[in-house]
Design a protein around this nucleic acid. Structure first.
Length: 413
RNA sequence: CGGAGAGUGGUGUAAUGGCAGCACGCAUCCUUUGGGAGGAUGUAGUUCGGGUUCGAAUCCCGGCUCUCCGACCA
């Protein structure tokens, strides 16, 4: 992509009245546009990041959990929520059909997925089954804040699993933890993301959250660094010690964290209201056991920005960076174009700054955007038939001969 | 949802009852070219609806929106 024709504009100045770090950097870097509190447009670069996160999640859902992707609607009949007793939730957005039918905007999809799967599950032979989607959720937050960390409209992956019994659910539930750890590792926030014990809310006795340690979070968790687990403050009084090593509350570290994922054993909480049952091997009609597993996709993107940034801007991890290489051409030159072509031919995603701007502006913008590798092509570097190679995480640049640049980038990316 | 503050060009701001001004951005031209350059000439604005007044960005009422504190948060 040539920057001269790229639909993007960065901002030098701090954005007024926007205390959230992820919002500052994403807005200034031209990744998103804020339409209103908690409602954002994703611009080309921001969307690229979002899609990469989505694809990591898709891959892990398929390979580790054998889940199948679907896409369910955002418009839900209110009736289904009456059936589950959730019609009075205050985060529900309500709307009407022209004919008078009452609808809500989907804030989660139990009320859709259960009636849907009722049409396909009738025998133990149909189980177990995992279906997931990546879809926009709507929650009428009374106070949206923290940039894309807490929105009224946000992208979420939700997986629902269906099982013959509790044991089978438990086995799947355990595997989902591995899939989640793998996802957060690939997003570059794995070392700060802890499996955290939490209350089951209205669904079950317990649940697990994936909490990423950051000051911008809204939850307090007690961490056991040795066992790599946390306990949400909401249940610390009933469970005042580490579930694995029995260390007590005082020995755990209290930290601020953002919930990037959560998993719940739903058991028959939602199968019952819709009579989702199956015929067992010996002909009995039994309720289907369910689990649900969420990841805030856009929230995870915000968490990455919060954690992986420095005073100059974002530092994207390579797997989700919008581009892998940023070529900066000082003084328009042919050589930058050639290197750009060569790297693209080698299969890389490259952004070429071919605009006629000052060097300082280009460097500052490049740091703000946070692409992992920067290559500068200028008269100065061309005098020695070289270009300058610098990682976003490093201070010093090095000169690399032009004929070696493709292989050098491949090895050092 | 309770409390507080605020809405002026694309962005940030000034004008407190009497000529809407400045900076950034954007456009054109000239100069400049290794850490968000300089000059010239342009461009574009009072959140919406009522009210008071000879006259409203400014005062009053209402709506909408934003920010902060709290509550809430499958």
């Amino acid at each position: 992509m040539r920057q001269s024709s790229f639909f993007i504009r960065t901002k030098k100045e701090e954005i007024k009245g926007e205390p959230s770090l992820n919002a500052q950097l994403l807005l200034r870097g031209g990744f998103v546009n804020k339409e209103m509190a908690g409602v954002y447009s994703y611009l080309p670069m921001g969307l690229k990041v979002l899609k990469k996160i989505e694809n990591i999640i898709r891959e892990e859902m398929r390979t580790k959990l054998g889940a199948q992707e679907v896409l369910m609607p955002a418009l839900h009949p209110l009736e289904n929520y009456k059936a589950t007793g959730r019609s009075e939730m205050d985060v529900l957005f309500h709307t009407d059909l022209n004919g008078g039918g009452k609808l809500v905007l989907g804030q989660s999809h139990e009320e859709i997925v259960v009636p849907l799967l009722k049409k396909f599950i009738s025998s133990y032979r149909d189980l177990p089954l995992g279906v997931f989607q990546i879809q926009t959720k709507f929650r009428n937050e009374l106070r949206a804040k923290s940039g894309i960390l807490r929105g009224r409209e946000f992208l979420m992956k939700d997986l629902y699993s269906f099982h013959e019994d509790e044991e089978c659910l438990a086995e799947y539930y355990e595997r989902s933890k591995e899939a989640y750890h793998s996802i957060f590792n690939r997003l570059g926030i794995g070392d700060r993301t802890y499996l955290t014990f939490a209350s089951g809310g209205t669904f079950s006795d317990y649940s697990h959250e994936f909490q990423t340690i950051t000051e911008s979070g809204e939850d307090d968790v007690y961490l056991c660094k040795e066992c790599n687990v946390g306990i949400n403050e909401e249940i610390i009084e009933e469970n005042p010690c580490c579930p694995s090593c029995e260390k007590n509350k005082n020995e755990l570290r209290k930290e601020r964290a953002i919930e990037v994922g959560n998993i719940f054993p739903l058991n028959t909480r939602f199968s019952d209201p819709f009579s989702l049952t199956y015929k067992s091997k010996n002909g009995e009609e039994r309720p289907v056991f369910m689990g649900c597993y969420g990841i805030g996709v856009s929230r995870a993107m915000g968490a990455v920005v919060e954690i992986l940034s420095d005073e100059k801007g974002i530092v994207w991890p390579k797997e989700i960076s919008p581009f892998s290489v940023h070529i900066i051409s000082l003084e328009k030159n042919e050589e930058a174009e050639k290197i750009y072509q060569k790297l693209i031919d080698a299969g890389m995603e490259v952004l070429l700054d071919d605009r006629d701007s000052s060097p300082g502006e280009k460097f500052a913008e490049s740091d703000l955007m946070g692409i992992p590798v920067r290559i500068v092509v200028s008269e100065k570097t061309l005098r020695s038939d070289s270009v300058e190679f610098k990682k976003r995480t490093e201070k010093e640049a090095e000169l690399i001969k032009i004929e070696e640049i493709v292989s050098y980038v491949e090895q050092n990316i």
